Simulated assay, not measured.
Amino acid sequence: MVSYKQPSFEERLELARLAKQKALDKLKAKPPVDPAVLAKRKAAAEAKEAAAAEARRLKIAAREQEKAAKREADEARAAAKAAAPALDAAQQKAARDARYAARKQRKG
Score class of each variant (00 low, 15 high):
28 K>C: 09
85 P>A: 05
3 S>P: 04
104 K>Q: 12
20 K>N: 12
54 E>W: 00
3 S>R: 10
39 A>M: 03
80 A>L: 08
52 A>Y: 07
51 A>W: 10
90 A>H: 00
100 Y>T: 13
63 R>K: 14
95 A>V: 08
16 A>H: 14
79 A>L: 13
29 A>C: 02
37 V>N: 01
31 P>F: 00
61 A>F: 02
12 R>M: 12
48 K>N: 14
84 A>K: 01
19 A>D: 03
30 K>H: 10
40 K>I: 00
104 K>Y: 08
82 A>N: 12
32 P>N: 08
60 I>K: 05
63 R>I: 06
26 K>T: 15
31 P>W: 03
49 E>L: 11
89 A>V: 10
33 V>Y: 08
58 L>V: 09
87 L>R: 11
24 L>R: 12
91 Q>C: 00
74 D>Q: 09
65 Q>V: 12
93 K>E: 12
13 L>D: 07
60 I>P: 01
71 R>W: 08
55 A>K: 15
9 F>E: 14
37 V>D: 03
69 A>E: 05
95 A>N: 08
106 R>P: 02
81 K>R: 13
94 A>Q: 03
28 K>T: 10
19 A>W: 02
26 K>L: 15
95 A>S: 07
27 L>H: 14
48 K>Y: 04
84 A>V: 09
20 K>V: 14
77 R>G: 02
90 A>S: 06
46 E>C: 06
57 R>Q: 00
22 K>P: 01
27 L>V: 13
69 A>I: 12
58 L>F: 06
8 S>Y: 01
83 A>G: 00
99 R>L: 10
70 K>F: 12
20 K>W: 12
78 A>F: 06
10 E>N: 11
105 Q>E: 15
19 A>E: 06
94 A>S: 00
26 K>C: 13
2 V>L: 14
11 E>F: 05
46 E>F: 07
13 L>Y: 06
37 V>M: 04
42 K>E: 08
76 A>R: 02
53 A>R: 14
108 G>F: 03
65 Q>L: 12
64 E>L: 01
44 A>S: 11
87 L>T: 11
30 K>D: 07
27 L>T: 14
27 L>S: 14
40 K>R: 14
103 R>W: 09
52 A>G: 07
101 A>P: 02
50 A>T: 05
9 F>L: 08
13 L>T: 14
38 L>P: 04
7 P>D: 04
107 K>Y: 09
5 K>R: 15
44 A>F: 06
53 A>V: 07
2 V>D: 13
58 L>R: 00
71 R>T: 13
9 F>P: 01
82 A>C: 06
40 K>L: 04
19 A>R: 03
85 P>G: 07
63 R>W: 10
15 L>K: 15
105 Q>G: 14
103 R>V: 04
69 A>T: 07
40 K>G: 00
